[in-house]
Design a binder for these strands. Structure first.
Length: 831
RNA sequence: GCCCCCGUAGUCCAAUGGCAGAGACAGAGGACUUAAAAUCCUUCCAGUGUCGGUUCGAGUCCGACCGGGGGCACCA
C-alpha cells in the first residue's frame, strides 16, 4: 500500500518526539513580537470579553496552585479569542501585606525590594507558562500610582459617611500585632498565622458595609446560575439577615425602657427573664446601684479573659449573674428578672434579649442552670421542655398567650407586632450577622489612611491635590510589630500642619487592610495609563462588568463580598453604570498532594519549577485541566503528567503526517472523518463554555485517535479531511497546550500565531449522524438494537419495532398497554 | 447544633430521566526490536454507598439512613 510505504519512510523507527525545552524557547520571543493577546485597540471591531484571573500575592515564585488557576483562566481567555472576541485578560499583583513586611523585618530592609523582586520572578514565570495576559495592562497595588486611588476612594467613602471611626472591642491578633476584620477570623483563629484571636478596645476606621446588607443579599438574584451556588450560599450565611421585631421593656427604676430584638415575638408570653450582654454598656449601667457591683465586676473579668476559642466550645456551660433589677413584660405586666451573661452578644441586635426558655435551647440551658421558670406557650405536640430539657422551637398552636391563643406562629407574630406597635412598644425589625468592615491596620506595608488629626479641627481629610500620601522609605526604621503602626514613630512623616488651620497636627499612622486594594483593582486595569483618574468612566463602561472571573473559593466571602460592596458604592456615587462587578464566577479547587494541602512542613510539597522542567509547560497545563472538573480539588498524586506528554506527542505526530497542502478544499475530504471533526469541534465548544474542560480534552483525545486511525488504516495522510482534523486539533489544543499547538500549526504550513487562527466554522450538515442505534424495549427491558435514520419519525420507528422478529415474538398476542416512542432513540412496549 | 455539596471499575473521572463507559492512569497480552525504551494494537475490571418511593424506564427525580467534604456557629 502506498500509504503504509509512505509512513515507513516518514517516521523513523526510533521514538519520535519534539524537544519540549527547545520548542518553548523557540516560540516565546516570537509571541512577544506578535502580542496575540493585546486587547483594546481603538479600531478593534470585535465584541469585547473581560476575562479576569484573581491577581497573585508576590510571595516567592509561582506554585502548583497558581499553575492550575492560570491554566484554567487561560483556557477561557484563549477560547474567546479563537471565537473572535476582543478579550481583555490582564494581570497584576496584590503587593501590599504582611509577608513582605515580615521578610523586611528579617532582613532589616525596606519591603519594596523584596516585593518587586518577587513580582519580577512571578512575571517571568507567567511568561514561560505562556499565560495569555495582556502585558500592557499590569498593575501593582504597592505603587503610589495605584494606592493614590485607594486614598481617593477612601475619601469618597468618608465624604458619604461610609467611612467612620469608632471605639469598639476589636479582633486582635497578638502574633501579627494588628487588628483583624471579622472576615479574617476563622474559627477564632487569625487567618494569616493561625494564632488565637483576642479582643482589644480600640478606636478604628470602619466601612459601613452593613448599609448595603440588603442590596448585597437581594442582588444575588442577578448572580444565580452564574456564580457557584456554594459561594452564594456562603455570602447569604455571612450576611445572615434575620427578620423579627424590636420590643420595648419598661425597667423598674429606670426612666427609659430597654429594647430587645427577637425573631419570635409570638412567644412573648413565654418570656420568664431578660438577659443583657455582660460586656455591654447597658449591663454596666443596670448594675450600678444594684448592690451586686462587686460580683458583677468579678464575673465580667472572667468573661473578658475568655478567648474566642473558649467561646466557641459547644458544650460550654451557661454562666451569668443576676443584676437585682426587673423588667416588665409589655404583654402581661409580669416582672422579669434581669441577668447578665456572656451568651448574649453586645454587638448583635441591641445586646439584650427576652429569654423564652421553653422555646429556645440556649435560654432553656440558662434557665436550668439558674433555676428560672420555664413557661410553655406553643403547643408543638412535643414533650414538655421542663421534663426533657429540650426546647421546642418549631411551629404549633399558641397557648397561655392571651389574645394569641390558637394562632399559628406566623399569624401570632403579625398579630402581636400590630398590638404592641399600637402602644408604641414594638416595631418589625431586621438584623444582620454582617458587621461593619474594620480597615485600620497597625502595620507599615499598606496604604496610609489619608486623614490628619488636628487638636482643634479633629479629623481632617488630606486635600485631594496632596494625594498620594506616600509611604516613607523604611530603611533603618523598626518595623517590628508592637501594637501601633511603625509610621507613627517616624517624626518627619507623621508630623504635618493641619490642612485647615495650619496648627501642628499628626497623620493617621494606620494603613488600610489590603482587601481595600483588591476591592476595585478590576476597574483599574481598564485605565492603567491614566494618571488623572482612578479609572476612565468610558473605558470601564466598555469593558465592565467582568464577563468571567476565575479564582479560589477562599475568597468567597472576603474579596468577593468587598468587591460587590465597592461596586455598589461607586455606582451610587455616579462612577459606575452597573451594580455587580463579576457576571460569571469560576472557583477552581485546590491542588493537593496525597490528600492534603501541600506544605513544606508536611513534606508533600511539589515544586512547579521541577514539574515544568521534567514534563514541560504544556503537559503540566494539560494535566491540570484534564485532572477533573475545575471546581474539584486536584490530587497531584492521581495525575499523570507523563500521560499528558504522551498524548501531546501523539497529537503532534499527526501534524507531521499530513501530506496535503494548506488551503486544500476540505469539502473533498473523507466524509466519515469530517463528521468526526465537526462533531468534535462542536462538543469541545460546548464543554469549554460549560466549564467541563476535562470533557473538552477527552473529546480532543477522541479526535486524535480517530485521525490516527484514518491516517494508518483509513483514508490516508493525503486526504483533505486529515488536514482539516489536524488543524482542528491544533486550534483546540491552543487553548491548553500553546507550544505544541504552535509547533503543529507550523508543521501544517501556517504562520504563527495559532492562538489567532480562529475557531473553525462548524457545518451543521456534518453534525448529523448517518444512522443511530435505536433500542427496542419490552416493559423497559432492552431486547434489540437496530440502526435507524436520525430523522426517523415516531410512527416509522414503531413500525420497524413491530417488524423486528424478536419484538413480534415477545409481543405475540399479548395485550399492549402502552407504547412509548422516543425517535430515534427507543421504543418501549408495555405489556 | 444549623445549613450546603458529593458518593459510578484498582485510581482520576464521563453519561439533556432512555444501551452504565466518553477520555485517561494503573494492570495484562500482542506486534515491532538482538533487547529495552518509544510507538501501534488488543484486553481485564463496576451495575452506580444502603433501603424505600415516583416513572413505561432512575446513576440521574423524591424521602430516610450510612459515609466523605465544606460553610456558619451562644446571631436571640
Amino acid at each position: 500500500m502506498k500509504n503504509s510505504l509512505e509512513l515507513r519512510g516518514r517516521i523513523p523507527l526510533m521514538h519520535e518526539a519534539y524537544d519540549i525545552q527547545h520548542v518553548q524557547e523557540k516560540w516565546l520571543p516570537i509571541w512577544d513580537q506578535i502580542e496575540p493577546f493585546k486587547s483594546g485597540r481603538a479600531d478593534d471591531p470585535r465584541p469585547k470579553k473581560y476575562v479576569l484571573d484573581m491577581f497573585p500575592y508576590p510571595s516567592g515564585d509561582l506554585h502548583m496552585g497558581h499553575a492550575e488557576a492560570y491554566a484554567l483562566g487561560d483556557v477561557i481567555a484563549r477560547y474567546w479569542v479563537q471565537k473572535g472576541f476582543n478579550v481583555m485578560h490582564p494581570i497584576g499583583w496584590d503587593a501590599f501585606g504582611l509577608p513582605a513586611e515580615n521578610a523586611a523585618i528579617k532582613r532589616n530592609a525596606d519591603p519594596r525590594a523584596w516585593t518587586y523582586e518577587n513580582i519580577a520572578v512571578q512575571k517571568a514565570s507567567m511568561r514561560r507558562f505562556a499565560c495569555s495576559f495582556d502585558w500592557n495592562r499590569v498593575l501593582h497595588t504597592c505603587d503610589p500610582e495605584y494606592y493614590k486611588w485607594n486614598q481617593w476612594l477612601f475619601l469618597e467613602l468618608y465624604k458619604k459617611g461610609l467611612a467612620y471611626r469608632k471605639d469598639s472591642a476589636v479582633n486582635w491578633c497578638p502574633d501579627c500585632q494588628t487588628v483583624l476584620a471579622n472576615e479574617q477570623v476563622v474559627a477564632g483563629l487569625c487567618e494569616r498565622c493561625d494564632n488565637a484571636v483576642t479582643k482589644k478596645k480600640l478606636n478604628q476606621w470602619y466601612l459601613k458595609i452593613t448599609d448595603y446588607a440588603d442590596r448585597l443579599l437581594d442582588d444575588m438574584s442577578q448572580l444565580e446560575g452564574q456564580w457557584p451556588e456554594k459561594v452564594l450560599m456562603m455570602q447569604r450565611n455571612w450576611i445572615g439577615r434575620s427578620i423579627g421585631a424590636e420590643v420595648k421593656f419598661v425597667i423598674e427604676g429606670r426612666s427609659n425602657p430597654v429594647t430587645i430584638y427577637t425573631t419570635r415575638p409570638d412567644t412573648l408570653y413565654g418570656a420568664t427573664f431578660m438577659v443583657v450582654a455582660a460586656d455591654s454598656e447597658l449591663a454596666a449601667e443596670l448594675v450600678a446601684g444594684s448592690g451586686v457591683e462587686a460580683d458583677f465586676a468579678k464575673y465580667l473579668d472572667g468573661v473578658k479573659a475568655a478567648t474566642d476559642i473558649d467561646r466557641l466550645a459547644t458544650d460550654r456551660p451557661k454562666t451569668g449573674i443576676f443584676l437585682n433589677r426587673y423588667a416588665i413584660n409589655p404583654v402581661n405586666g409580669e416582672k422579669l428578672p434581669i441577668w447578665a451573661s456572656d451568651y448574649v452578644l453586645a454587638d448583635y441586635g441591641t445586646g439584650a434579649i427576652m429569654a423564652v426558655p421553653a422555646h429556645d435551647q440556649r435560654d432553656l440551658d440558662f434557665a436550668r442552670a439558674m433555676k428560672l421558670d420555664v413557661k410553655v406557650v406553643v403547643d408543638t405536640g412535643e414533650e414538655d421542655p421542663n421534663v426533657t430539657g429540650i426546647a421546642t422551637g418549631g411551629d404549633g398552636k399558641m397557648i397561655n398567650s392571651g389574645s394569641l391563643n390558637g394562632l399559628s406562629k406566623s399569624d401570632a407574630i403579625a398579630k402581636i407586632i400590630e398590638e404592641l406597635a399600637a402602644k408604641d412598644a414594638a416595631i418589625a425589625a431586621k438584623n444582620y450577622r454582617l458587621r461593619d468592615w474594620l480597615i485600620s491596620r497597625q502595620r507599615f506595608w499598606g496604604t496610609p489612611i489619608p486623614i490628619i488629626h488636628c487638636p482643634s479641627c479633629g479629623e481632617v481629610p488630606v486635600p485631594e491635590d496632596q494625594l498620594p500620601v506616600e509611604l516613607p522609605d523604611a530603611t533603618g526604621i523598626d518595623l517590628k510589630p508592637k501594637g501601633s503602626s511603625p509610621l507613627g514613630a517616624i517624626e518627619s512623616w507623621v508630623n504635618v500642619p493641619c490642612p485647615k488651620c495650619g496648627a501642628a497636627a499628626k497623620r493617621d499612622a494606620d494603613t488600610m487592610d489590603t482587601f481595600f486594594d483588591s476591592s476595585w483593582y478590576f476597574l483599574r486595569y481598564t485605565s492603567v495609563d491614566r494618571h488623572d483618574v482612578a479609572f476612565d468612566k468610558k473605558a470601564v463602561e466598555t469593558w465592565l462588568p467582568v464577563d468571567q472571573y476565575v479564582g479560589g473559593v477562599t475568597h468567597a466571602i472576603l474579596h468577593l463580598l468587598y468587591s460587590r460592596f465597592f461596586t455598589k458604592v461607586l455606582h451610587d456615587l455616579g462612577h459606575l453604570n452597573f451594580t455587580e462587578p463579576f457576571t460569571k464566577l469560576l472557583n477552581q479547587g485546590m491542588v493537593l498532594m496525597d490528600g492534603s494541602a501541600m506544605s513544606k512542613s508536611r513534606g508533600n510539597l511539589v515544586r512547579l519549577s521541577d514539574e515544568l522542567a521534567t514534563h514541560g509547560v504544556d503537559a503540566i497545563r494539560l494535566a491540570m485541566v484534564f485532572a477533573g472538573p475545575p471546581e474539584d480539588d486536584v490530587d497531584w498524586a492521581d495525575v499523570s503528567p507523563s500521560g499528558s506528554v504522551k498524548f501531546l506527542n501523539r497529537a503532534w505526530r499527526i501534524s507531521g503526517d499530513v501530506t496535503s497542502k494548506p488551503g486544500v478544499d476540505f469539502k473533498t475530504g473523507d466524509l466519515a472523518l469530517r463528521k468526526v471533526v465537526h462533531k468534535s469541534l462542536h462538543d469541545i465548544s460546548f464543554a469549554v463554555e460549560s466549564f467541563r474542560f476535562n470533557v473538552a480534552i477527552a473529546r480532543v483525545m477522541e479526535l486524535v485517535n480517530a485521525t490516527r486511525k484514518a491516517i494508518d488504516s483509513g483514508c490516508g495522510p493525503s486526504d483533505p479531511a486529515v488536514r482539516e482534523a489536524a488543524e482542528a486539533i491544533a486550534i483546540s489544543l491552543s487553548l491548553v497546550a500553546p507550544f505544541t499547538a504552535e509547533e503543529m500549526w507550523e508543521n501544517l504550513g501556517h504562520k504563527p500565531a495559532v492562538a489567532l487562527a480562529g475557531w473553525p466554522t462548524i457545518d451543521p450538515a456534518l453534525l448529523e449522524a448517518d444512522s443511530v442505534t435505536a433500542i427496542l424495549q419490552i416493559n423497559g427491558k432492552i431486547l434489540e438494537r437496530i440502526e435507524v435514520s436520525p430523522n426517523i419519525s415516531d410512527s416509522d420507528l414503531e413500525k420497524l419495532a413491530f417488524a423486528n422478529p424478536t419484538i413480534s415474538q415477545a409481543v405475540k398476542d399479548a395485550e399492549i398497554k402502552k407504547i412509548i416512542t422516543r425517535a430515534p432513540k427507543l421504543v418501549n412496549i408495555v405489556l
